[in-house]
Amino acid sequence: MVSSTALSIIGALFFVAGAAAQTAPQYGQCGGQGWSGATTCPDGWSCTVSNQYYSQCLPGAASSQPGSPTTSPGGGSPTSTSSSPSGTSTLTPGNSFIRAVEDPNFHKYLRSEVAGTASDAVLGEPNTAAQFQITAGQLVQLVPDGSKLYATVEPRANSTVMKLKMSWSESPASGANAGTFQWSGDTVEWSIPTIQRPQLNAWLICPDAAGNKDVYINLGPYDYQTPAGCADETIHAYTGATATP
């Protein structure tokens, strides 16, 4: 007769085996510390490490195994693996690139619309990627000349407004509309006590009349009731040596 303890162990083994046999969705989580879900990606996709807590199914060949992130010097920023360098900007230790990881903005990088100036926040190509830190709740862009730019978010005019435009300022964000930027794993979040958001890491990319990919904070539900012309995104730290496509 098999004991109840043995049956429990056998059941747990079958559960783990079943989870491992499942296939994670495209751009879905596939690994990380404490992850018990699917670890296999669809054909043509690989489980790519973002940090010790999160690995994601991304297009192409694997750069590393789930749960084995490459660490980067400097501290304070999430770590990720990198593929062959192809960007022109070399990451300074302690900084991070920030990029989207979903179509139609896959591996488009955060920057100023006019590079290195106080202008709209946009996503651009890898060879124009800016570098960032999050310090005391401020999202800080490090400009090559040694100066700093600070992310600011427009105030919400009324409760019907569901997206807030982000731009760069030469002065730190302050006052009732400043809000707080923070890392959650490798994901950038923004919160403010006066607004309740369904998802703190929900962003929108909405092209302007000139085709610039303007960055907005999404106050509504992610991937639902998306404003016309916009795309839902999350934006993530990347600490490879250079910004890569």
Rank of each mutant, 00 (worst) to 15 (best):
Q52Y: 13
K165Q: 14
Y54I: 05
Y109W: 15
P93D: 14
P78I: 02
N51V: 02
E154C: 03
H107S: 10
F106W: 10
T117Y: 09
L164F: 06
F97W: 06
V143Q: 06
Q133F: 04
Q133W: 01
S64P: 05
A173R: 02
Y150N: 01
A61I: 08
G179P: 00
Q138K: 13
Y54H: 14
W168S: 03
D103A: 10
A130G: 12
F181W: 15
V49P: 00
N158K: 07
Q52D: 15
P104S: 06
S83T: 13
P126Y: 11
N127M: 05
A151S: 13
S89I: 13
Q56R: 15
Q131F: 02
M162Y: 07
M166G: 11
P73H: 08
N95W: 04
Q52M: 05
Y54Q: 13
L91M: 11
L142Q: 15
I134C: 04
S169R: 02
T70M: 12
A151F: 00
L142N: 14
E113V: 11
N158D: 15
Q52H: 07
T79P: 01
P85H: 06
T160F: 08
T180S: 12
S112N: 11
A121D: 00
G67V: 03
T187D: 13
S83Q: 15
S80K: 04
S86I: 08
S174N: 06
R156F: 03
A115V: 08
Y53W: 14
G60R: 10
R156P: 01
L91F: 04
Q182N: 14
T92W: 10
G94H: 09
L91P: 01
G74K: 05
S55L: 08
Q141I: 00
E170M: 11
S80M: 08
S55E: 07
V101E: 15
P155K: 08
N158Q: 11
T81Q: 11
T180Y: 04
A61H: 10
W168N: 03
A62F: 08
T128Q: 12
V140G: 06
T48E: 14
F181D: 00
I98N: 03
T160M: 09
P126N: 12
M166A: 14
L58W: 01
G75T: 10
L139P: 00
V143F: 05
A136N: 15
N105E: 12
L91K: 03
K148R: 14
G179Q: 01
R156S: 12
A151Y: 00
G146W: 08
K165M: 09
K163P: 00
E125T: 09
G124N: 11
T92A: 13
T135V: 14
Q65Y: 09
S86W: 05
F106R: 10
S174D: 10
A100N: 09
